[in-house]
């Protein structure tokens, strides 16, 4: 937190988490150039994630995936009025410093990029810009929050067009939160140990039954029905990566997923927007993958 000249405060937990609150009910779309960013904003995206290659291309190309070129991020910032997010490698605090200097609105410390540190994530408390991090279970989510993440997204398996891992992660996090909420107080210390999570955060979840920050969903969402599914499972917003711009008609798919994220409880609306959409991205079976991105992060 920093005090400014008129005694207002920037970078507080409330303004960092507050932006995540404002994104709820929305769709954050991966875009690789200003043209795609414009399509996303026109379709009603609440934010865009600026990156050089969508996850399915990173998966196909292999090699080391890094932070995007600042010029590309700046071109996208100049094109849209909605928040612009960008990805830094896990543990690569210098990339995060650069992204903050570029005035991005949110940093995703992301397993989609090649990790830079196999022991430590970025110490996120020292930054004014807020961070979103992925999690496959409650312990991982609380460790990230302990490091200063202001938004958690279930990881899913990025770039696959297959929602099965996102569902697994959401259900796991929900089940573990229910377990904490129903536990005897004396059990919470042991449960914190099992989760490998900071005790104060475990006690908070036990009391409130929810994460202390918003929880969104990412990884494998590629149809309006997928968005409805994960929202009904408790996700408060969705990140869609390859699912839009790898589909047959990205503009229509983007609009359809935006409507599905809002009206996820109304199957007649989801049915209407799903009708005649063209092909979704092709997708992969989990068993066919050589690299599981969700296993990155610790």
């Amino acid at each position: 937190m920093t005090l400014t000249s008129d005694s207002s405060v920037v970078g507080s937990a409330r303004v960092k988490r507050g932006l995540a609150d404002m994104l709820r009910g929305g769709v954050i779309m991966d875009v690789v150039n200003p043209e795609q960013a414009k399509v996303a904003e026109d379709a009603g995206a609440v934010a865009v994630m600026a990156l050089e290659r969508v996850p399915s291309d990173i998966r196909r190309d292999g090699g080391v995936a890094r932070m995007s070129d600042p010029q590309m991020i700046q071109e996208i910032q100049a094109t849209v009025t909605i928040p612009v997010m960008a990805k830094a490698r896990i543990g690569h605090f210098a990339e995060a410093q650069i992204l903050q200097a570029l005035d991005v609105d949110y940093i995703d410390e992301s397993e989609v990029l090649t990790p830079a540190d196999e022991d430590n994530h970025i110490d996120k408390w020292g930054f004014t810009v807020p961070f979103v991090c992925g999690a496959t279970n409650l312990g991982e989510a609380l460790r990230r929050i302990g490091e200063g993440a202001c938004l958690i997204r279930s990881k899913g398996e990025a770039g696959t067009g297959n929602v099965v891992e996102a569902v697994r992660h959401l259900r796991t996090i929900n089940a573990q939160m229910r377990r904490l909420a129903s536990a005897d107080e004396a059990e919470l210390y042991r449960l914190a140990k099992d989760l490998q999570a900071p005790l104060p955060l475990v006690l908070e979840v036990a009391q409130t039954g929810a994460l202390p920050v918003p929880m969104f969903c990412a990884g494998g969402i590629s149809t309006p029905a997928d968005a409805s599914l994960v929202m009904q499972l408790g996700a408060q917003a969705v990140f869609v990566g390859s699912g839009i711009f790898k589909s047959e008609d990205p503009d229509r798919m983007a609009r359809a997923i935006v409507e599905a994220a809002t009206h996820y409880q109304d199957a007649s609306v989801v049915a209407k927007v799903s009708t005649g959409l063209g092909a979704a991205m092709r997708g992969f079976e989990m068993a066919s993958l050589e690299q599981r991105l969700a296993e990155r992060g610790w």
Binding site: T4, D6, S7, S8, V9, V10, G11, S12, R14, V15, K16, G18, L19, T81, P83, Q100, D103, V104, D105, Y106, T128, V129, P130
Partner: peptide, 14 residues
């Protein structure tokens, strides 16, 4: 003016 006080890192409490 949208975002008239700046982008996210300028967001503030007072």
């Amino acid at each position: 003016r949208r975002n008239g006080f700046g982008r996210q890192i300028a967001s503030f409490e007072t």
